[in-house]
Design a protein around this nucleic acid. Structure first.
Length: 414
RNA sequence: GUGGCCAUGGUGAAGCGGUUAACACUUACGACUGUGACUCGUACAUACGAGGGUUCGAUCCCCUCUGGCCACCCCA
């Protein structure tokens, strides 16, 4: 048996890479338009970084991390998400010193030891963006607008934006105990998972899909009704700014996030087309994270999207580049002629292909068709001698005479 | 980590105890010795995910492993 890739680790094959590039290029274009710059950070960090940022008790840290001890005895982990590493770099290089307002984006592989499913893999890819240093809800709204703009840009209008507020260290603890109290009174009606959640993550019970739990939590207190004045004002402003720009969204008071560092605004772009992997992008505000990691008290907000999930939504659409011209040749001498001409055209930025192996004319034209070449030209002895040839437009078979010179062909094909 | 379903060539798949392992697509070549797409012809699985077992005999039955899909957990 030949060696195969690791479970949950996938190859992005040539037929799919066009789609990936399309997504990445759109993200770069939109993010840079919005004033974001790329940051490239390592895919491995000290394990402690993730414990401290994501949260020791979260599923990610408890059971999903690729952690090991390196040869120097250091506890290291393949990053399960991007924000922690980006913020570590932000603090380490004191980027806030030159400008506390930083707008940065990143993209690359993340690793989580989970059971693979469609749209969920052990090595997966995220494109994320973060704004630091802005308390104002305008930042929240702008991040959301940019996310929505990205999805428009790549031609997906299906994922819907949902927003929520998780409050802050001022109001969340009180709400949390209220909720626990509420749930404890109905513990008999809750499913096994939700009973466990009571102690681990009570908010999660609001998101449970078991009918009994949905019924039992129907009258549960909502975080949104229990926000402190500052959080409530913040959330109200976020909504107003979204309305101001006509950004469509809905409020999902039961939306829960898996990372401990979120405060106030949280959001998801959700789709119904990927089964249980409904979130294609998600994020939120993390006002305490930077100081928690040893940096100054600077707020932040950001999101990450799952590239695999976005690619799945784009479906089978073909993003392959088609040649502008395919040159078919009849003999070895003509092949040399074509080879030289092809390279002149390539220099001028035209996509040109030719046969390398002296195949039959029929084979060559079949290949031209298969590659989707816009034009083809047959070069034989007389063409080389006269310097003129018949150019054929493949879509409709229309033929036209042309000089076999780089300049002329270039203007004809551009 | 839990549960269910599944695994035949490059692809989609028939076959379900003894078959030349069907068919279609793809690919290659040809019909057309200088013109693709349509059509037609020819070729292309010592082989049925891997390893064990049952049997005279296993792609087909049983076990284990590996992988995939779906749901849960959780999440991008």
């Amino acid at each position: 048996m030949a060696i195969t890739a690791i479970k949950g680790f996938n190859d992005i094959l040539p037929v799919e890479s066009g789609r990936w590039q399309h997504i990445e290029q759109a993200a770069r274009r939109v993010f840079e338009l919005n004033g974001f710059s790329e940051i490239r950070v390592p895919i491995m960090e000290k394990t402690e970084l993730f414990c401290r940022s994501i949260g020791d008790a979260t599923d990610i840290v408890e059971k999903e991390m690729y952690s090991f001890i390196d040869k120097g005895g250091n506890a290291v982990t393949l990053r399960p998400e991007g924000t922690a590493g980006v913020m570590r770099a932000f603090i380490e290089h004191k980027l806030y010193a030159q400008d506390p307002v930083a707008k940065i984006y990143y993209l690359g592989p993340m690793f989580r030891y989970e059971r693979p499913q469609k749209g969920r893999y052990r090595q997966f890819h995220q494109i994320g963006a973060e704004i630091t240093g802005v308390h104002d809800p305008l930042a929240d709204a702008q991040v959301l607008n940019m996310l929505v703009q990205f999805f428009r840009e790549i031609g997906l209008d299906e994922p819907q934006l949902q927003v929520n507020s998780l409050g802050c260290p001022e109001c969340r603890p009180a709400y949390r105990s209220d909720l626990i109290g509420f749930l404890e009174q109905r513990v008999d009606a809750l499913c096994e998972d939700c009973r466990r959640r009571l102690s681990t993550n009570p908010l999660r019970a609001l998101d449970c899909k078991v009918p009994g739990c949905i019924a039992a939590t129907a009258g549960a207190p909502s975080m949104l009704d229990n926000l402190c004045g500052a959080c409530d004002g913040h959330f109200t402003s976020v909504k107003r700014y979204l309305d101001l720009t006509g950004t469509p969204y809905s409020i999902n008071p039961r939306m829960v996030r898996g990372l401990d560092y979120y405060t106030r605004t949280t959001f998801e772009m959700v789709t119904s087309l990927l089964g249980s992997q409904s979130a294609v992008a998600a994020g939120g505000r993390y006002d305490g994270l930077i100081s928690q990691l040893g940096g100054p008290s600077i707020p932040g907000i950001g999101f990450a999207m799952g590239v695999e999930r976005v690619a799945l939504l784009l479906g089978e659409k073909d993003f392959c580049r088609q040649p502008d011209l395919f040159m078919a040749t009849l003999g070895a001498g003509e092949r040399e002629f074509a080879f030289r001409l092809m390279n002149e055209l390539l220099q001028k930025g035209l996509r040109v292909e030719m046969d390398y192996e002296g195949k039959s004319l029929k084979s060559q034209l079949r290949r031209a068709d298969k590659l989707g070449a816009r034009y083809s030209v047959v070069i034989g002895e007389s063409e080389v001698a006269s310097g003129r040839a018949i150019l054929k437009r493949m879509a409709d078979g229309v033929q036209m005479e042309t000089a076999l010179a780089a300049d002329g062909l270039c203007t004809l094909l551009c």
